[in-house]
Nucleic acid binder design. Structure first.
Lengths: 223, 223
DNA sequence: CGCGAATTTTAGATGGCGTTAAAAATCTTT
DNA sequence: AAAGATTTTTAACGCCATCTAAAATTCGCG
């Protein structure tokens, strides 16, 4: 009956991330995220709806139920604990921990999860700076501004870089865009932005900027 | 094409263990071992045969091919390294490591496997005393003493000669070291040992002795 | 040897997860 | 608002991995 497979966990995780701001997620969004045909996405969403893990209205999109969100958060917790453990205790490089954790997260027992968390000192953030959900589902700082939200002329500090696109992560690391680094917005361009970092000026395409979460050095005027 | 699933790895592992003495394994044996119906076992064996991982004759049983054995040994290596790692580095109790390793073994990358092995100091036995296959598929039979374990002055009979190193096997055969032959240990030397066989005295280098499994003519004192 | 018993294989379902192609619904645009 | 474009769903298929029931084969015993 209520068998939650690894693939389902992956979809739930992806839906969770997609619905951060938006209230509902569309079939094409999840299909693109999972690199799957729209038809496959539909059938999976229907399966998840049958298990009451998403609320789904045909042609109108879907959103996680609280049960679905619970599983998404558990899976993300597994993922981020594993990333941190692999990096700190087995010396796996940062651009590889995501892929490794992606497979391990689905077969991690509650017991081993607890032992890993304890060994790490119950950490609250993974090696990319992303927050690790607590056992009770608490997740800190979800609505961080990204680089795109930094107005021209304003400087900020990179808070964390999302692990959802490993190759983007690697390219950014190569450009020196790492947590803790100061960054200044020069100008917004169509399809990206021009920034100043470590004295150099770079133009970052859109797909690289959207995973870069920042802190403003001086708070901007709230919208 | 050649996608080896976790279930296939489990079957290959089980077939490997069942065929230790016997030359062929039957459908009912593997079905019982995997707690699965005979029909399921048949269909899986047919899948494995299609991938050339087992040699299968309908109604007559089956055995691993060398490709199948390689995968079985890799899986067993993953399993036993994980058991040891979970016990030593995460404090998982011995009665639980098997179940945990059972799920993790199928998603362990070569890289993490290597890092775990290195962290453990490239161990040769898991916490239950079972030998851990080496990367090249070498497996030291733990319950079976090899020539090296024969004390000086003690005589034994060659039980079997490992087939994992065909050229060593050939050289040993040329020297008369064959199953059923009586052999007497004269002295242990650095890097090998001196033995008496068929009235002649030979000095065998280490790489030749380690695949020679023996039986003692008189049992040694138990530890 | 031959026949009943045991083993093994085949046939046909089911469910998960993916595909492509076509139909249905919704959006967009004039 | 109708037509055309886009999105979404359905239909039909394939593969894995399991099941039950029935057919085929082999074994064992009188």
């Amino acid at each position: 009956m209520g068998v939650i497979t690894g693939a389902m966990q992956d979809y739930l995780k992806a839906i969770f991330k997609l619905q951060q701001d938006r209230s509902a997620v569309s079939t094409s969004e999840i299909a693109a995220r999972m690199r799957v045909s729209a038809a496959s996405a539909t059938s999976m969403v229907k399966r998840l709806a049958r298990l009451r893990l998403v609320a789904y209205t045909p042609y109108r999109g879907f959103a996680l139920t609280s049960a679905g969100e619970r599983i998404a958060l558990e899976t993300i917790r597994h993922h981020r604990l594993l990333e941190l453990y692999l990096a700190q205790h087995l010396g796996v490089s940062l651009d590889k921990v995501d892929g490794e954790a992606e497979r391990l997260e689905h077969v991690l027992s509650e017991e081993v999860e607890a032992r890993i968390a304890a060994t790490l000192g119950n950490p609250t953030h993974d090696p990319h700076g992303d927050p690790i959900p607590a056992k009770d589902g608490t997740l800190h700082d979800v609505h961080h501004p990204t680089l795109r939200h930094l107005p021209p002329g304003q400087a900020g500090v990179v808070d964390r870089v999302s692990d959802s696109h490993p190759d983007a992560l690697r390219r950014l690391a190569g450009l020196g865009v790492l947590p803790g680094v100061a960054i200044k917005m020069v100008a917004h361009r169509s399809g990206g932005c021009q920034v100043e970092i470590g004295g150099r000026t770079l133009t970052l395409p859109r797909e690289l900027t959207q995973g870069v979460y920042i802190q403003w050095l001086t708070a901007p005027t709230k919208p």
